[in-house]
């Protein structure tokens, strides 16, 4: 379990904090979606949850980030990387650039941990299998589609053996096929018992995979609950968040006094 307790965070060189008193819990095997308007603080929540802020990028953290009972600030970054990892939106900047094959790229993390060769090999194979990309193993990581590249990046994180995975807009740069690939992979990941935190603008995608959704507005968590309840909340648009298509349709029908989707005979 990863918990943010009363977290306040200010970037280095800025006068005001970006996050205020944020409480957020990430339980094992759970996919939590994080939504909010642009510049509301979603990416900052990701950086803080993964421990990169303040450990790598500086700034000032108030409150506690606790992983399985231990405060992140007491752990060195490479130590932290075995408990929580973070992925970003651009597959190409997440590539190490020093691997000739996808297998080597995914193996880089475990290798850095100083694991014996046999363990590195085993973890790499397991990560590729979990995301069902064994067939990419011998490909050049620089020559993959966006979706494949993002899966390789996530596999690279997975091989670190973390229980918590934070992904900041993992499908932003992908086409619909790539987004679907990643969404399916995230479901597989959660089944392994890992806890996932995902920032995403595509409400339909979150609607399909999340157990819970939290809404960030101006650096505060303003709503946190089961996916259906949060994504169906009337206030969502006011926070700059797009409701999923099914919610929008249901509302448009209701506004005209028409029966809902289910009554019309539609099942997803």
């Amino acid at each position: 379990m990863l918990e943010l307790r009363g977290v306040t965070y200010r970037y280095a060189g800025y006068a005001r904090p970006v996050l205020h008193d944020v409480d957020l819990a990430l339980r094992d095997g759970e996919i939590v979606g994080l939504v909010g308007a642009n510049e509301a603080g979603k990416s900052t929540v990701c950086l803080v949850a993964s421990g990169l802020a303040p450990a790598s990028i500086g700034g000032q953290l108030g409150g506690d980030v606790v992983i399985d009972g231990e405060r992140t600030t007491s752990l060195p970054v490479h130590e932290l990387a075995q408990r929580v990892v973070i992925g970003f939106q651009n597959p190409s900047t997440q590539r190490s650039g020093v691997a000739a094959t996808v297998f080597e790229e995914v193996a880089l993390g475990p290798m850095n941990l100083g694991l014996p060769v046999a363990e590195t090999l085993a973890r790499t194979r397991r990560a590729l299998a979990t995301l069902r990309i064994e067939d990419l193993a011998d490909r050049d990581p620089a020559r993959l589609s966006g979706g494949q590249g993002q899966l390789v990046a996530i596999a690279g994180l997975l091989a670190m053996g973390p229980r918590h995975i934070v992904l900041d807009e993992p499908t932003a740069q992908l086409d619909p096929e790539g987004s679907n690939l990643v969404a399916a992979a995230l479901r597989d990941l959660a089944r392994t018992g890992a806890a996932l935190l995902i920032v995403e603008h595509k409400a339909d995608l979150l609607d399909g995979i999340c157990d819970r959704v939290a809404v960030v507005d101006a650096g505060r968590i303003v709503l946190d609950g089961p996916t259906t309840a949060v994504l169906g909340d009337e206030r969502l648009a006011g926070w700059g968040v797009e409701p999923p298509s099914r919610v929008r349709l249901a509302r448009s029908l209701a506004a005209r006094g028409l029966p809902g989707l289910a009554e019309l005979g539609w099942t997803a």
């Binding site: 993964s50 990169l52 790598s56 990028i57 970054v77 490479h78 990387a81 075995q82 990892v85 973070i86 992925g87 970003f88 651009n90 900047t93 997440q94 190490s96 650039g97 080597e104 193996a107 880089l108 993390g109 290798m111 850095n112 941990l113 100083g114 694991l115 014996p116 060769v117 590195t120 090999l121 990046a153 690279g156 994180l157 670190m160």
Partner: peptide, 20 residues
Amino acid sequence: ERSLALEVRAFGRPGVRHLL
């Protein structure tokens, strides 16, 4: 971005690595 992504994969860890 690249250096953050590498940091997450323990690139900064001191000590020996067993290369493949």
